[in-house]
Design a protein around this nucleic acid. Structure first.
Lengths: 214, 214
DNA sequence: CGCGAAGTTGATTACTATCAATCTGAGTGG
DNA sequence: CCACTCAGATTGATAGTAATCAACTTCGCG
């Protein structure tokens, strides 16, 4: 499989420069790439695997902000306050490149394209969160799940994996956390979509039959 | 009132540099600072007034991503795709500084502190959206409204306005759009908070009596 | 084989949306 | 100055959706 670094569309030349400064780290399934309230020092570029990006408040309530995969960047919320406002837990055994933020800034001065890239990545995160909020605010459970499957399908598409046949790396509870629903509701929504002939699902495996006239 | 530019905590020296490149623009109440799908060229720094930042999808469903005020930055979601993914509508007669993104990037090379500032601003937007999603996913109507009032109170605090006594610049419908609720539900939540003795509210005017044992 | 985590399904409750009727107050023009 | 108007806001009644509580099933794994 292709090695993903920083973005999928970065010049090879820049990649070389970055790789000199990379520290590669294994992140076994269930462990953290970075933790909530940990001092912000670095961004993490996922080379292999996938994560869940969890936000929590004082009351222990948890929300899943997203499921970043190979090629995505972790820790973007950290440089606002000097500590991470979320945490990233590996859903599978994963590999990340740790890029100290200071290094990234220094390199940006010599390689403006790198700076552009960082801006786009952060901007994309903002745009993604805005679309998520739109979904959370407006869609009923079943449509949320459909939107989620569609989003996931596109994430896989960008990585050359089948868009109609794939395994979910996360539990029903994780999905519920991402969609702002309860696990049971997610399970029922899966069943409903299956009954309607839109998908075929067995545990973690999903097959999308038709995209639905959304 | 103090003039707000870029961030409240930027060196005077840098401010001068920026101001040379500013184009100031009046944005009357009800008009746009920028529109959805408009080509991305610039960020907007609010000098006076306040806005609602609205995201829409194809079905015409709308979500309010936030209510940026003087000192905040608009248009951050634009540089991901080359066009704005949202739009900003003035809630009051407002004034913005339009900073072409290219200019900002050029200046960043000479003034690294400016680059830092941009990173922090984008990072803060990401962190803010994450907290919003946490609220949308977990809290019941009344607590959402309370969280919103608290957030607003802090926004005012940062601008030297009373944290316990203020006028809402937005309608109930806008608040509903931000909280992922219906206007009627927001109205009922206001009434309930009043009955519980937490707030005093008449139309747009709000007085916070006690913060509640959240 | 048995245990436990993950997932499904059912019954009931609680909350919010929806539809509909009013109320209020700011702005307008006679 | 007052009546009129209308957008914004409130309140009520009802329906619909998701949460909650509980029982049960499935599957991976030691």
């Amino acid at each position: 499989m292709q090695k993903h670094c920083f973005t999928q569309r970065l010049d090879a030349e820049i990649l070389e420069v970055l790789e000199k400064n990379f520290t590669t780290r294994q992140v076994p399934r269930g462990t953290y790439a970075y933790r909530l309230y940990e001092p912000f020092r670095a961004l993490f570029f996922i080379q292999e695997g996938s994560f869940k990006n969890a936000v929590r408040n004082e009351d222990g309530q948890e929300f899943i902000a997203g499921f970043p995969m190979a090629g995505d960047v972790l820790g973007l919320d950290g440089c606002a306050n000097g500590y991470y406002g979320s945490q990233a837990i590996a859903l599978q055994d994963s590999v990340v490149c740790e890029i100290p933020f200071q290094t990234l800034k220094d390199l940006s001065l010599s390689y403006p394209v790198l700076q552009d890239s960082l801006h786009r990545i952060m901007s994309r995160a903002i745009a993604h969160n805005q679309r998520s909020m739109l979904m959370l605010g407006n869609l009923p459970a079943e449509e949320r799940l459909l939107a989620f499957l569609h989003e996931l399908s596109q994430q896989f598409a960008a990585r050359g994996i089948s868009t109609t046949d794939f395994d979910l790396p996360m539990t029903r509870e994780d999905i519920a956390g991402y969609l702002g629903l309860q696990m049971e509701t997610v399970s029922r929504a899966f069943t409903k979509l299956h009954v309607e002939g839109l998908i075929n699902v067995h545990r973690r495996h999903v097959h999308i039959d038709r995209v639905g006239a959304a």
